[in-house]
Amino acid sequence: MSNPILRTESLSLVYGKGTPFEKQAVKNVSIEINRGEVIGVIGHTGSGKSTLMQMLNGLIKPTSGKVFLDGKDIHADKKSLRNVRFRVGLVFQYPENQLFEETVRRDIAFGPHNMGLPEEAIEKRVKSAAAFAGLKPELLDRSPFDLSGGEKRRAAIAGVIAMDPEVLILDEPTAGLDPMGREDLLSQIDAYHKSRNNTVLLVSHSMEDIAGIADRVLVMNHGECVMLDTTQNVFSKAAELEKIGLRIPQITKITSELRAKGVPLSEGILTVSEAFEEIRAILKKEGRL
């Protein structure tokens, strides 16, 4: 696509330049992210992925290189930087730790309020954001500190969704949730993306989560972007990923090992149901089912 929503140009970040603690957190990252895509971002803790995400909405200023949002350099005009944060919404890790208002409603309204929207518009946004995040309407008038862990997480995510960002970045949104909470939240994010058709970047340690939702996967290692390709292509490169200490989803691993043994399965199978269908088809063809 010719007009990416986000583009970076040899983005680099060095901490503590000139001191003995000098550390290159992000190294020469040039990527393009297209409108409407869901990008999975994977990499070790300390691989620079969280730092990169904070550079995409201008929270961290690069030591060199540029970030373009919709073709415009986000650091070109200092005054518009705040506006960039409304357009590129960032949900931090453990976002429930940022809740502070008396009611959930007011907390979700914090972002839209900062945008200077009129009251009616804010109210509308709060309601729809809460719905997108899967937060029951009756919780809106409760104190955020009375909610359960999972509900707090949803309230915090709704606080960013309420800004109606063109790009939504979620940094490990499912960390610490149980399998049920994880599954629900991911399908909520998927539904949100499908209905708004905006761009979503999802940082996660769970390859199974990424496999289920991402169009493309960005792999970070030691501050560098080592891969940015379709989910199937990235997870087909098991050996390369394992070299940098990352896994592939168990189901992908199983099917690719079977494939190596001569079972005619497709490359880069990402979900259990895909694998199931293919294996069933094989067995049916052989007349064994």
């Binding site: 730790n97 940022q98 960013v160 800004m163």
Partner: peptide, 15 residues
């Protein structure tokens, strides 16, 4: 933690 919370609120447009 203060650092993190400040960044998170800035991401929601806190000035």
């Amino acid at each position: 933690e203060t650092d993190k919370i400040m960044s998170a609120q800035k991401a929601r447009g806190a000035d």
